[in-house]
Design a protein around this nucleic acid. Sequence first.
RNA 1: GGGUGCUUAGCUCAGUUGGUAGAGCAUCGCCCUUACAAGGCGAGGGUCGCAGGUUCGACCCCUGCAGCACCCACCA
Length: 938
Amino acid sequence: MRHYAQPHNRDNFDKGMEKTYNPQEIENRWYRQWEQNDYFRPSGRGGAYCIMIPPPNVTGTLHMGHAFQHTLMDALIRYHRMRGDNALWQPGTDHAGIATQMVVERQLEAQGTGRKQLGRAAFIDKVWAWKEQSGGTISRQMRRLGDSPDWNRERFTMDEGLSRAVTEVFVRLHDEGLIYRGQRLVNWDPVLLTAISDLEVNSVEEKGKLWHIRYPLSGTKGHLVVATTRPETMLGDTAVAVHPEDERYRKLIGQTVELPLTGRRIPVIDDDYVDPAFGSGCVKITPGHDFNDYAVGQRHKLPIINVFTPDAKINREAPPAYQGLDRFEARKRVIADLEAAGLLEKIEEHTLKVPRGERTNSVIEPYLTNQWYVRTKPLAEPAIRAVEDGRIRFVPENWSKTYFNWMHNIEDWCISRQIWWGHRIPAWYDKDGNVYVGHNETEVRQKHELKPDVALHQDEDVLDTWFSSALWPFSTLGWPDKKPELQTFYPSSVLVTGFDIIFFWVARMIMFGLKFMDDVPFRDVYITGLIRDEHGQKMSKSKGNILDPLDLMDGIDLEALVKKRTSGLMQPEMAKKIEQNTRKAFPQGMPGYGADALRFTLASLASTGRDIRFDIQRMEGYRNFCNKLWNASRYVLMNTEDQDTGLDPKDPLELSLADRWIVSQLQITERNIGQHLNEYRFDLAATELYEFTWNEYCDWYLEFSKPLLQSAQASAAAKRGTRRTLVRVLETLLRLAHPLIPYITEELWQHIAPLAGKQGATIMLQSYPESDPGKIDDKAAADIGWLKQFVTGVRRIRAEMNIAPAKLLPVIVQGGTAQESALLAQYSEYLSSLAKLESLTPLAADAATPESAIALAGEMKILIPLAGLIDKSAELKRLDRELQRFRHEQEQIGNQLQNKNFTDKAPPEVIGKKRERLHELERALGDLQRQAERIKSL
RNA sequence: GGGUGCUUAGCUCAGUUGGUAGAGCAUCGCCCUUACAAGGCGAGGGUCGCAGGUUCGACCCCUGCAGCACCCACCA
């Protein structure tokens, strides 16, 4: 009789299991069920467990990094949900200001229009439209992976609520003096026409030149030589600096030089900043276009001359000959003119660090503008303490060093951006340039008693995307309102993210969380490695080595893959190479291994503190693992469905040795997996699962179950016990594995659970298995260990003597302890079945035996008569190899035990173990040696 | 210039108070044995980057070196 627990309505459910594992079919089916039944919603019971998703770009697509992090987050959430925690995985997306704006601008360009032509309001409408159109992609892909966030709570950083939080934070920080507006040099992207933060600038080592230029001394003959990598900025020089102690130039300090090409006269100043040993020891000072020079300029009260327009062309401050020239054109012209004037002393090859914008890759200019800043020092101090005193823990721990290093040297954060897509800065100006900050214009007018006739206009700039991201841990929970979920889920339990955004995001969340919630935003920060390709290269479009998680799950044919990798390249000339590599690496395309295989692979590769080389071979292995689990379930089902699995407590039940052993192993596995998951060792958890499933349950337990279930002698109670164990261990195993491989475990659980007497509509909401130490049975483990040794011994002889696997063998046994003999007698049926024996004949220790091949199980000798079966010289070779191995170990241990230092100083239990092992070896050596001599003498 | 990590079987990686090494994949041999050929049963393969030190004993702890990767930093 079947008693499925509230079966979901499915075709072919009652037809038993499909013969082959087909991940795509299962996976599509189950996700819908889960989501429709709202299984992802926090239960409202139990302790709070919360993970805030690092919000992906709303218009983005899922890449391997997401797949990796999401797998870990989802595994944690599913694990805690099953453990009975009130588990919330908060989903959502980020508006990604610059990135998204750039995408839409590019689209407009392709349509022959542009941002400027449309105007601000119309452009923003376009961006929203693009968000509506493409914004669902990433969440669809998350669903494909099996992610289980509470979709009801999905948030977007530009939602009304989150925007309110942004304004609130800005106003409060401003009122406290922690946000200010200031004019200073910023990192300016002349392509995007906006300021960016230090973090968005990457310095890249590039080959350049060092130009040595003569600056004639005023009113006398002679000149100073300055060296520069950026000659065009000389148009904005306002001094030349030398080191105060530099004897060569001491007398020139306070005098002036004639700045070439400009007709200006500039002073020679002294400053410690100058390194007398570098170049000529004289430095041109351009406060308007260099961060160091700016500082020197401040110290010496030098004027600042800005010679660039926002798009880095020469402006009207420079001599007319250069006006309007692009900076690189201007460089050529300046050099040519200096050369013509005989002022170019020499040109050297020079490698230098060029600052480039993260998004545009254009050379970033230090540029003097008005921007908004967050004063970070006061916020950083408590944020440092929170990690120092352990309220926040980095996993692996060493990342806290990186964090400290940055936090101790933190600079004020430039938060204003001259773009349109983002949170508009809540500041208003009157016609005199006075600034008023408030939640809105009405409030500003009230607060500052501004009459209606005072015209105000809002700041044109928007905030850095990371400003709203920094609020994510509480803005998503309804802050500044005091919602119950804010109370419940803040602080979250763990943040899972990459090291690349520790500064951008993690540090800022900690600062803002402590500031506004008076508590840390999360307890643990689990830092993942980067996913690289199988050669250790970063995955990138331009290298053509990107693996798309969707392709790995659902498959792609070769032509489609080649097309995908070679279209839309920035450097089309790479296409040929990429095509070649792709055809070589995936001659058959990709078969589509399913979400579970991808997740299991990512989990097993998730060693802490290490980048991951994604190896598709390994993924295939883990798909095979899923297949193994599938087939094991089929076996269990075939042997238990429509049969008595011991559900009625009145029926007598008897557990065999193998039953007790596998249950014992299961307890150990449960304990280890729980530990590993608690320690974020997903790799070890996956390995544990793999080994138990394949090497214990499938390879041995299922094989042990076969002779018992088929035995004519075994009692109904014993068979019932084995069926019950088959089903119960599998059912538990499915729950254990569910956080890593949710789909296949759900599918199988639906079949298996009723047979194990489990009720429930989904495995997702079942309890997570917990180890019961009372069921750990060392005796059973030892006995099974001996039986395995016996079986393996026979198999080894069989394999090495080239005896057909199907050929039944007669076996003689001799010697052995009383315990071994008892096991032999009791479990001869197992042994015969697993080792394929024809007969099993015990002989007295001193009885004469025929010429045989020998194997040892503990102290028992297993003899397989040679007659007709066995090749004498092959057996001798085999024995010899075995003897050598034993002798080698014997010698090692012997030496050790003869070393007085060792026997005096090593702990007694170590010495005892060695002695024991030595005796074992000596006995085994004796047995094997005698056997070898017998065979030789024939 | 400062900092971090890595170096273990052909490849990708584990290795938990130091007791002289493991897995998967790949390789080789035999098997389509009624859960599974996406499989079964066996086998081979490592001076744990190099050099010292501590220790009875080092893949593990200490020092130095080399190679690789990454992060931070204002040398014109």
